[in-house]
Write a protein that binds this DNA or RNA. Structure first.
Length: 140
DNA sequence: GCCAACGTTGGC
DNA sequence: GCCAACGTTGGC
């Protein structure tokens, strides 16, 4: 099985990509949405994650990876939610903004654009590759 | 099981 | 700070 690709959102004021780089690995917990939870459970070790900053940034800033697959979320108070462990892979050469993503045809099907509130969403390999490519180019 | 009300999220 | 979209809850 090839690896899969996902996009995870974080509020940079709470836990930014830099925080993840500093920590080396972190527990991705607190997800309380069933669709997002199911996405967490569908992840395999080594799957690639785009790291998106919400709030006033609204941009993808880095690539991370699944360090540990889904296990019961210890912050869920006994409810049936899951957490994973996430490790940083690399910062992108430059951040790719939401506005740019909206203008890119190859990303028109991207789940983030259609359902911005979903905190963990799937990406196709093409979408992942397109975004990484955009991040290696200057703003056009 | 449906649907209205409500709370939360995130873009602008 | 506002509002639209969406998910969840609770009354029926």
């Amino acid at each position: 099985m090839g690896k899969n690709y996902w996009l995870i959102k974080s509020e940079p004021s709470k836990y930014s990509f830099d925080d993840l780089v500093r920590d080396g690995v972190t527990r991705w917990d607190g997800v309380r949405n069933f669709a997002a939870r199911n996405n967490l459970r569908a992840m395999s070790k080594g799957d690639a994650l785009l790291y998106y900053h919400t709030e006033d940034e609204r941009q993808v800033v880095g690539v991370a990876a699944v360090a540990k697959t889904a296990y019961p979320d210890p912050t869920a108070g006994g409810e049936d939610f899951s957490a994973i462990d996430v490790e940083p892979v690399r910062a992108l050469p430059r951040a790719v903004t939401l506005a740019e993503m909206k203008q890119e045809n190859a990303l028109s099907g991207m789940k983030l654009l259609r359902q911005p509130r979903l905190s963990v969403s799937p990406l196709t390999k093409d979408e992942f590759d397109t975004l990484v490519k955009m991040a290696s180019k200057k703003t056009g």
